[in-house]
């Protein structure tokens, strides 16, 4: 079953890096994700051009969720990531043990793709993992 998120992510065959389908305003330069046509900052129509947004950023906030929606194994980590290209996005964190995870705000993080859900509802979604250099 197609999922709207399929249109938003692509993976480089060479590097394995994940890129997001963002948009940049030709008037004011604001970059948003997901891509839209109309600028929310200068409030003008048809001014956004497609732009790739890198799947890399820094950790802004995170929390351990001991309860979650249907289909989510608890506990898991919820986080807000400030992408290097501007937009702030939500993600779970890919870590070995959510309970012992600890990181400073501003830690560099990289997007990876993982399967969410099962059966007909399965889709490819994103998670973020701490950069190798920071993961000591």
């Amino acid at each position: 079953m197609p999922n709207a998120i399929d249109e938003l992510v692509s993976v480089s065959a060479q590097t394995g890096e994940v890129t997001l389908a963002g948009a940049r305003c030709v008037n004011c330069g604001e970059v948003v994700f997901p891509a839209i046509q109309d600028c929310p900052l200068c409030v003008e129509p048809d001014v956004m051009e497609p732009v790739p947004v890198r799947g890399h950023g820094v950790l802004r906030d995170y929390v351990l969720a001991e309860r979650g929606p249907e289909g989510f194994a608890v506990p898991y980590l919820q986080a807000w990531i400030a992408l290097d290209d501007g937009p702030v996005i939500y993600s779970t964190l890919a870590v070995a043990d959510p309970r012992t995870f600890s990181a400073e705000r501003g830690s560099p993080m990289t997007m990876i793709l993982e399967q969410f859900g099962t059966g007909d509802d399965a889709f490819q979604g994103w998670k973020f993992a701490a950069d190798a250099a920071a993961d000591v």
């Binding site: 994700f33 997901p34 906030d61 929606p69 898991y76 979604g125």
Partner: peptide, 18 residues
């Protein structure tokens, strides 16, 4: 839904991060 809740964001989680 597309970019947040289907990836596991919950109200309690979001508010608690803040």
């Amino acid at each position: 839904q597309t970019t947040a809740t289907q990836l596991g964001l919950t109200w309690v989680g979001d508010l608690t991060m803040s």
